[in-house]
Structures are given as structure tokens and as C-alpha cells.
Amino acid sequence: MKTYRLEFTQKIPVDLDRAWNFFSTPLNLTEITPEDMTFDVTSPDTEQAKMYPGMIITYKVSPLLGIKLNWVTEITHVKDKDYFIDEQRFGPFAFWHHNHHFEAIDGGVLMRDILHYSIGWGPLGLIANNLIVAKKINDIFNFRRKKVEELFGKL
């Protein structure tokens, strides 16, 4: 099973507290996800919750063709105002491990996402990644970049 690695960075002109508070609140993920994915947090206890190790977050998401899928992630690690990690427990990927890092820099915060994922399905997964999945993930992170700039500005 092939595992892929993607990394995305973005600088935003806010302090570390503001960045951390926004990105560590699960419901805010819907605000920075493309509307065509119809991304809905379905966990009943995530209204104002901050992330903590062991937190389970459930979603409904339509990654392709408007087909709604269940996605369950667990927040496995949290270091306050430094990083958190979410891992898929059930969903569209065979493997999903997503690191979110935050670093105070002059004038704001450097955010760094490191994503490892696998589709499974052997050779079909390789083809799906090359034709659809890698582009879709990059599109999602490009949308996020633009949305975060709209919300917080550009550094």
C-alpha cells in the first residue's frame, strides 16, 4: 500500500493564541472547507469544544460526485499552541495522518500541515491518486489558503 506525503505552509498575521483558538475548534473546519464537499461536523459535543487527545470527531463529507460519506477522526496528540494530530478511524482513506503545526514568527504565525495518506486498493489506488485524489487534496488546501487569507489577512 503506497503512502503519500504532502506538506503545506501558510503565514497569517495574527498572534499564536488567535490562530490556535480558531484551528483547534473542530466546527471551524467547515468554514475553511470547500462548500461542494458539503462538510458537516456531526459530533454532538463539538459546539465549543477545544481539541484534546482522544477526542473523536465525526463528519459527513462529499469528496466526489456528491456522495455523502461518514468520516471519523481521532485527535491523537495535542501540544497547546504548538501542534495537534488527527488520524482517520473510519472514512474514505485506508490511512490518514494529519499534523497541524503552529509557530510564532515575526508579524504572525507560520502554520504547517504535514499529511500522510493512503488510498489502498492496490494498483487502482495508485491510478485514483494520480487521476483524482492528489489533485482534490491540493484543491482543498488551496481553497483553505484563500479562505484563511480572507479571514485573517496575508503575511
Rank of each mutant, 00 (worst) to 15 (best):
M1P: 11
M1R: 10
T3L: 12
Y4T: 03
L6V: 02
E7M: 10
F8I: 13
Q10T: 08
K11P: 00
K11S: 07
I12A: 05
P13D: 04
P13W: 05
L16S: 07
L16D: 10
A19H: 03
A19T: 06
A19V: 07
N21F: 02
N21D: 10
F22G: 02
F23P: 01
F23M: 08
S24N: 06
S24P: 00
T25G: 00
T25S: 11
P26L: 05
N28E: 09
T30I: 07
E31G: 03
E35N: 11
D36E: 15
M37Y: 14
M37E: 14
T38K: 05
T38G: 03
T38Q: 13
T42G: 06
S43F: 03
S43W: 03
S43I: 04
P44C: 01
D45H: 10
Q48T: 09
K50D: 00
M51H: 01
Y52A: 11
Y52Q: 10
I57K: 00
T58K: 15
Y59T: 06
K60C: 05
V61H: 02
S62I: 02
P63S: 04
L64F: 15
L65F: 14
G66Q: 09
G66I: 09
I67E: 00
L69E: 04
N70D: 12
V72Q: 08
T73P: 01
I75V: 12
I75H: 07
H77E: 15
D80T: 12
D80Q: 11
D82M: 05
Y83H: 13
Y83P: 02
D86R: 03
D86F: 05
D86T: 06
E87K: 14
E87F: 00
Q88K: 06
F90N: 11
F90I: 02
F90E: 15
F90Y: 13
G91F: 05
G91V: 09
P92Q: 09
F95G: 00
F95Y: 15
F95T: 02
F95R: 05
F95M: 11
W96R: 07
H97P: 05
H97G: 05
H98V: 00
H98W: 00
N99E: 15
E103G: 04
D106F: 07
G107R: 13
G107A: 09
G108C: 12
V109R: 10
L110P: 08
M111R: 03
D113Y: 10
I114A: 10
L115M: 13
L115N: 07
L115K: 03
H116Q: 14
H116L: 15
Y117S: 05
I119V: 15
I119H: 08
G120I: 09
W121V: 14
W121A: 14
P123V: 15
L126C: 02
I127W: 13
N129Y: 04
N130C: 01
I132V: 15
I132S: 08
V133I: 15
V133M: 03
A134C: 06
A134M: 08
K135Y: 09
K135A: 13
K135M: 04
K136S: 13
D139P: 06
D139H: 10
F141Q: 07
F143K: 12
R144S: 11
R145L: 11
V148P: 01
V148T: 15
E149P: 01
E149N: 13
E150A: 08
L151W: 06
K154S: 14
